[in-house]
Amino acid sequence: NKFNKEMRNAYWEILLLPNLNEQQKRAFIRSLYDDPSQSANLLAEAKKLNDAQA
C-alpha cells in the first residue's frame, strides 16, 4: 500500500529531525496516523519547522 510506505518513511524522517522536541514529533506523528494521505505534506511541514528551529 502506497500510503503505508509513505507514512512509514515520513514517520522515521520526522523521528530523526534533530531540532524538533518530543512534543512536536508526537503531534506530527499523531497527524500522520489520523490522515496517512497527508504524509508528504506533514513531512514538509515538519522539515520546515525543523529548519526554523535550527
Rank of each mutant, 00 (worst) to 15 (best):
N1S: 04
N1I: 09
K2A: 10
K2H: 15
F3V: 03
F3H: 07
K5W: 04
K5T: 02
K5E: 11
M7R: 01
M7H: 05
R8V: 05
R8L: 14
R8N: 06
R8W: 13
N9S: 14
N9F: 11
A10W: 03
A10T: 11
A10N: 04
Y11A: 06
Y11P: 01
Y11W: 05
W12A: 11
W12V: 06
E13K: 15
E13L: 07
E13W: 07
I14M: 09
I14N: 00
I14V: 07
L15W: 06
L15R: 12
L15S: 09
L15F: 08
L15G: 03
L16A: 15
L16V: 06
L16T: 14
L16G: 15
L17M: 11
L17E: 01
L17H: 09
P18R: 12
P18I: 07
L20N: 00
L20E: 00
N21T: 12
E22Q: 12
Q23I: 10
Q23A: 08
Q23D: 07
Q23V: 12
Q23H: 12
Q24H: 07
Q24G: 01
Q24W: 05
Q24Y: 04
Q24V: 08
K25D: 00
K25L: 04
K25W: 02
R26L: 05
R26F: 07
R26I: 09
R26W: 04
R26M: 07
R26P: 01
R26Y: 07
A27F: 09
A27Q: 14
A27N: 14
F28L: 08
I29M: 03
I29K: 03
I29F: 07
I29N: 01
I29W: 05
I29Q: 03
R30W: 12
S31P: 04
L32H: 01
L32W: 03
L32Y: 01
Y33D: 02
Y33R: 07
D34R: 09
D34V: 12
D34K: 11
D35S: 10
P36G: 08
S37E: 09
Q38A: 11
Q38F: 08
S39V: 13
S39E: 01
S39P: 08
N41R: 11
N41E: 07
N41Y: 05
N41H: 11
L42N: 05
L43A: 11
L43Y: 04
L43S: 11
A44Q: 08
A44F: 14
A44N: 14
A44M: 13
E45K: 12
E45R: 12
A46H: 00
K47D: 02
L49H: 09
L49M: 11
D51I: 11
D51P: 02
A52L: 11
A52K: 11
A52Q: 07
Q53T: 11
A54M: 13
